[in-house]
Design a protein around this nucleic acid. Structure first.
Lengths: 123, 123
DNA sequence: CCGCATCCTTTAGGATACTG
DNA sequence: CAGTATCCTAAAGGATGCGG
């Protein structure tokens, strides 16, 4: 078993929400899936520059358990697995939007660099 | 120096924002300061059940450096230090509000327990 | 009262090799 | 293609004791 003894008692809503999006790539995964609708494992991997297979799998499993992500396996060869947001995951993304805007603002203010993924081409 | 080599390059706004609120107690500190306006060190400590002095100090320093929290020292004996949100911290809190609502919703849905602090008595 | 310093444990995250 | 399994490092967090 990897880790994840999360889901402890929370003190407030922020606490409960941050628990679910904590993890180096979870915010990005939500963002990718929201932008593209459906993504395969390898596509997600390309969209998250620097992520390891292990972390991607682990995060996806946790998000699936948290009912944020839907995982659909096609019994073909070669295998194909598609990931998408659940309705629940979609509402989370909407709740995250203002925070994202605040963060973009912060980046502009502080002059932080933006590392754009290869060919994600959103907007 | 404790740690904090944060402020790396970011991939998107969510990334940049989560970096600043990551840390076991930062969300709660924001919430406490927003609810009360001004808090002393010991008051904050009581409002965050389980926090150690080290973590509280460390988080407060980082948030001060990120310009989210204002720290005012009164040269008295016994010493008194008051913490409050900066304008910047306040806007973060507003951006965090929808996420907090989502989290509260999640807690209700999943039936997680709420651990309320001793005598914070917000609302 | 408000911390800082030190030491220690736990957890997150990464590298790499292998499998159905 | 889409993962597991194993090992390892780094960072976060916690306990405790001292100091202004």
């Amino acid at each position: 078993m990897a880790k994840a003894p999360r889901h402890g008692p929370y003190i407030c809503g922020i606490d409960a929400a941050l628990d679910v999006v904590s993890g180096k790539w979870k915010g990005l995964i939500l963002w990718e899936l929201d932008a593209h609708g459906v993504r395969r494992f390898a596509e997600l991997r390309r969209g998250l520059p620097g992520v390891s297979e292990k972390m991607l799998t682990q995060h996806l499993r946790e998000m699936e358990e948290d009912n944020l992500v839907h995982r659909e396996v096609f019994a073909e060869v070669p295998p194909r697995v598609e990931y998408s947001l659940t309705e629940h995951g979609h509402t989370l993304n909407q709740a995250l939007a203002p925070l994202g805007a605040w963060g973009s603002d912060r980046m502009r203010r502080e002059g932080f660099e933006v590392v754009e993924a290869a060919e994600t081409s959103h907007s």
